[in-house]
Computed example of a mutant assay.
Amino acid sequence: MKKVEQLNSMNMIEDFVKNHELSFLYVSRQDCGVCHAVLPKLRELLDKFPLIHLGHVNAYDVEEVAAKYSILTVPALLLFVDGKEFLRAARFVHFDELENQIEKIYRMYN
C-alpha cells in the first residue's frame, strides 16, 4: 500500500506540495466514517502511480487547510502537479472515475 506522510501544519503541507512534482493531499477528520473507508482504497489506487506522493491532513489539527484550499467537506482529495491543483474529489468518491482522471493526468505528466 502507498506510504502516507502525515502533515501536521500548514508549513508541512505547503512544503509537501512544493517539494513533490506530483502530490496528493488527503484531508479528513477523525470522526468521519467515510474518511476511514476511503483512505485504504485511495492508498491501494495510488500504488498504481509510483510518482505520486500521498500526504494526509487531519482537518482538526490543521484548521487553516480548509480556508487555504477551499475545502467545504471531508474527505477531500486534491492532486497537485508542480504545485498547481489539477484534480479534486470530495465526500463520496467514485474510484473508477477517479482512477481514470488520475491516469490521464499521470500520462500527460510522463
Rank of each mutant, 00 (worst) to 15 (best):
I13N: 00
E85S: 12
G55T: 05
H20D: 10
V38P: 03
N8H: 10
L78T: 01
D15A: 14
A76N: 06
V17S: 10
D96N: 06
V74P: 02
V65C: 01
A89P: 01
S23L: 04
Y69E: 03
E99H: 13
E44N: 08
I102Y: 04
H56W: 10
K18H: 14
L98D: 03
L77I: 04
V17M: 11
S28R: 02
E85K: 09
A67R: 08
M1C: 14
K3P: 03
D82N: 15
F86M: 15
H36D: 11
R91T: 08
A59W: 02
F16Y: 12
V62S: 03
G83I: 08
F80C: 12
K84D: 14
E5C: 06
I13K: 00
V74E: 02
L77C: 04
L51P: 15
V74Y: 05
L87N: 07
S28Y: 01
A89C: 04
D47W: 15
V57G: 00
H20S: 12
L77K: 01
D82R: 12
S9A: 05
K48D: 13
F16W: 11
V27S: 05
E63H: 13
I13L: 02
E103C: 14
F16L: 11
A90R: 00
C35I: 04
K48L: 09
L79K: 09
C35R: 03
C35L: 07
E63G: 13
F92P: 09
F80M: 11
F92T: 06
N58Q: 11
N58I: 10
D61Y: 08
F24H: 07
L98C: 08
H36F: 13
L87R: 07
E14C: 09
N100M: 14
R29I: 07
F49T: 07
V74H: 03
I71N: 01
H36T: 10
Y106F: 13
F49K: 09
A59Y: 01
N58S: 08
N11E: 12
N19E: 09
N100H: 11
E21Q: 15
N8Y: 09
E44T: 07
Q6Y: 10
F92N: 07
A76Q: 01
D82C: 15
E63K: 15
E64C: 07
E99G: 13
D31I: 02
E5Y: 01
A76G: 06
L46A: 05
R107G: 12
A67H: 09
R107D: 12
I13P: 00
I71M: 02
H56I: 06
I102A: 08
K48V: 05
H56T: 08
L54G: 00
L77S: 03
K41Q: 05
V74I: 08
F24G: 05
G83R: 07
L79A: 05
K48W: 11
